[in-house]
Amino acid sequence: MKSRDGLTHSRRWFLGAGAAGAGGAWLALQAPVFRAAALQAREAAASGSPLASLTSHEFTELEAIAARIIPETDTPGAREAGIGRFIDQAFASFRAPDLPAARRGLSELQALVAAAGSAGEPAGADTTDPGGNNAPLFSELSQQRQDDLLSRIEGSEFFELVRWLTVVGTFALPSYGGNQDQIGWRILGFDDRHTWVPPFGAYDGETEGG
């Protein structure tokens, strides 16, 4: 069976086999709902299984927003870290009460896109129908236009919800599904180990003579 947290092995290695046996059984006993849901995010992504809470349209739009909150630059960003699946699982479990607000927020954002549509992109949009069905989707806009629109809604309840989910998912334990390959931790420079020895940083290194 797959490791439950991806870190258990190193901890078990350290704590020794006796303690590990009891700990493993204990973890299995308490296995909470949220944890199970989060773990499913990885497995769902890997297997291409259906989304748990979002429509594929909503998934695409929310992932596009997250990808501007922590964008791909010279290093991978939230999208590459698997944030879409994390958000989908969050709305299926511990943030389920916020899903209606998220849907409203997406609609309002799309209305902004449509209202701004007459500004002229992408080519082919129906400029005679600024609020209509032929406006491009947020996810189809250029990064610059996406950023302009997000600047306009920064501070709104919807933006703050998506930001919270994006940041949390990107920097939480990879086993929650949104920090795949430790992409988030590499953005920070956080080194994932269980034990350290001094010197820890440059200044105590000087003191220690190292």
């Binding site: 870190l7 303690a19 009891a22 700990g23 204990w26």
Partner: peptide, 10 residues
């Protein structure tokens, strides 16, 4: 909960 039940940096 005992030592082995605490998850590192969760």
């Amino acid at each position: 909960r005992r030592a082995e039940d605490f998850e590192h940096h969760d």
